[in-house]
Computed example of a mutant assay.
Amino acid sequence: MTTMTKSAKLHPRNPHQGRYDLTALSKGYPPLLVHLTVTPGGEQTINFSNPDSVQALNAALLQHYYQINHWQLPPGYLCPPIPGRADYIHYAADLLAGPAGVPTGKQISMLDIGCGANLIYPIIASRSYGWRCVGTDIDPLALTAAQLIIDSNSTLKGQISLRRQPDSNSILRGIIQPGDVFALTVCNPPFYSSATEAAAANQRKRANLKLPDSPQQRNFAGQQHELWCPGGELAFIKQLISESVEFASQVGWFSSLVSQQSHLKALQAAARQAGAAEIKPINMQQGQKSSHLLAWRF
């Protein structure tokens, strides 16, 4: 069992500051109540080694902060930590800011590459800024689950649409159509290069959180295509950069999450070689975890 707090280093517009108020979250989402427990020190928490508890916490957060009343994932699908995902959206929004601040409303469109079943980025972007969002994925079941979330929440209808990527060897090709214009693309790439690497990383994470040893269990779950691909995130983002050249006139800013700081130098070099006019690496800090956002435009 472990407790989890959020760092004051989150983006200033990120609403997920400080400790989770589990009492308030449970009032808005009563199913969270059965997952509450108490630490030896007397603090209220949940069991973060239990994927069902993590999913219940996420559902409660989405209800409390984004008025999402129905959010459910198929078993075993990625259940991401919402505060960190919100950080990405708010830092990415800064890329679009002008003298009047961050633009809002449906005239701003965002493309989420690999939205998964959870639909986190489009939910946060549409509810925080009113943007129109398109989510894409190669997995039909993930898109079916994501569509159910849209259909079950009136706040999302007309704000989010979905597209299936028919070619597992392509990222933007087959998705961005003639006439499409996106202010921003976001992406949470597969981080690992193999199932073995993903399993080893999961074990390190569980050890850092002092969770029971369990090679099969991930507290945030994840399907194979969500977690790893040949070459890992470095190869995936390099391909994204390569394909982005073809759609330079249709997209304002391309971006991707980068989990390994050691990959940034090579990725920035790839963006320069592709002809990007501006490249921005942005450091994001969530508690003890550090991640990076790489953005580029032509």
Rank of each mutant, 00 (worst) to 15 (best):
I171G: 05
R163T: 14
A183C: 12
R164D: 10
P190N: 05
T144Q: 12
N153W: 12
P189Y: 06
D137C: 11
L156P: 07
L184F: 01
A146M: 00
Q147V: 01
F191L: 10
L184Y: 11
V186S: 06
K157E: 14
I171Y: 02
D151G: 04
G179Q: 07
S152G: 03
R163E: 11
S154W: 00
I149F: 03
I176S: 03
R173L: 12
S170H: 14
N188L: 07
P140L: 07
I160K: 12
S170R: 15
A142W: 07
C187A: 05
S152C: 01
N153Y: 09
L148I: 00
C187L: 09
K157I: 15
R163D: 09
F191D: 00
N153R: 04
L184D: 09
T185H: 04
L148C: 04
P178A: 07
L172P: 07
P166T: 11
Q147F: 03
T144I: 03
T155S: 09
V186P: 06
D167T: 10
P166V: 03
S161W: 14
G158E: 04
I175R: 06
Q177R: 11
N169G: 13
A145F: 06
R164M: 14
T144N: 03
L141N: 10
G179M: 08
D167P: 15
C187H: 08
R164E: 15
P140K: 11
I171L: 13
P190T: 04
I176P: 08
D167Q: 14
Q159Y: 15
V186W: 03
I175W: 08
L143N: 09
